[in-house]
């Protein structure tokens, strides 16, 4: 939807919507994805090695990535998993829980604030565009509403530029401050716990992120990515040369 003069120039209709991937390309992509190994997420070192290779295989093959995104747009159970959140949005392009392979694009919004958090799942992130300011934290307290924000100590700070792959255990506390429109290809494990812990650095507010299955219908509707937002991201992905 065009809301201001010139917006149509900023977000032209993404060509992926005008020219869908061919059935043959989709069949080839599905055959490749079916040939991927099962990831042993209980052995993080092994998982890191294999998921980095998979992430680079998919992320560096732009035609394949385009086919997978095009396929996801036409696959209702994947399209339903496209979500918008405060700091980032996500487009799920493959979901094979038996193999430990949920693969999505993480799309960072402009607004960023620091929240120390862990995850419901372990993951590998391959940064395709932009960069993270990445900080790992330690603490000596239970991760619940009583957590004291001053007792989260940064012990590792690093810039993660485009082209880098990182793998993180679901228990690891960290923050990622991203440049606007940082795009990552994420491969995540099946859920390892019911909820992830989050605490805002500037005021100590604690909250949790639940899995989709535990969220209310109202919450699901709230986070579902609109078609307009999806068009925006597809357009940006094409502009960055990622699709």
């Amino acid at each position: 939807m065009v809301t201001r003069p010139g917006d149509d120039l900023l977000d032209p209709t993404p060509s992926i919507l005008l020219t869908a991937p061919s059935e043959q390309d989709i069949a080839k992509a599905e055959a490749l994805m079916a040939s991927l190994p099962k990831v042993r997420w209980d052995d993080l070192e092994a998982a890191a090695e294999i998921t980095e290779a998979i992430a680079r295989r998919l992320g560096d093959d732009r035609a394949l990535l385009r086919t997978l995104v095009g396929r996801a747009l036409r696959t209702p159970e994947l399209r339903e998993k496209f979500e918008c959140h405060a700091l980032d949005d996500k487009i799920v392009i493959w979901d094979d829980q038996d193999k430990g392979l949920r693969i999505r694009l993480r799309l960072a919004n402009t607004d960023q604030y620091e929240r120390v958090h862990n995850h419901r799942y372990s993951f590998t992130a391959y940064i395709l565009h932009g960069a993270y300011q990445h900080t790992l934290y330690a603490t000596d307290q239970p991760l619940d509403e009583s957590a004291d924000v001053s007792r989260f100590w940064p012990y590792f700070v690093r810039e993660e530029p485009a082209g880098r792959c990182i793998t993180l255990d679901h228990e690891q506390l960290h923050t990622t401050i991203t440049e606007p429109e940082t795009i990552s290809l994420m491969i995540q494990s099946p859920a390892r716990k019911q909820r992830a812990f989050m605490i805002r650095r500037d005021d100590g507010t604690v909250w949790y992120r639940l899995g989709a299955a535990e969220e209310s219908a109202e919450r699901r509707a709230e986070v579902r990515m609109s078609d307009e937002r999806m068009h925006h991201w597809l357009s940006r992905l094409e502009a960055f040369g990622l699709l």
Binding site: S35, L36, P37, E49, I50, A53
Partner: peptide, 12 residues
């Protein structure tokens, strides 16, 4: 081994 798809790798 690893069935040619790397269910296992050299690291194993």
């Amino acid at each position: 081994g690893g069935f040619w798809r790397h269910d296992r790798t050299a690291q194993d």
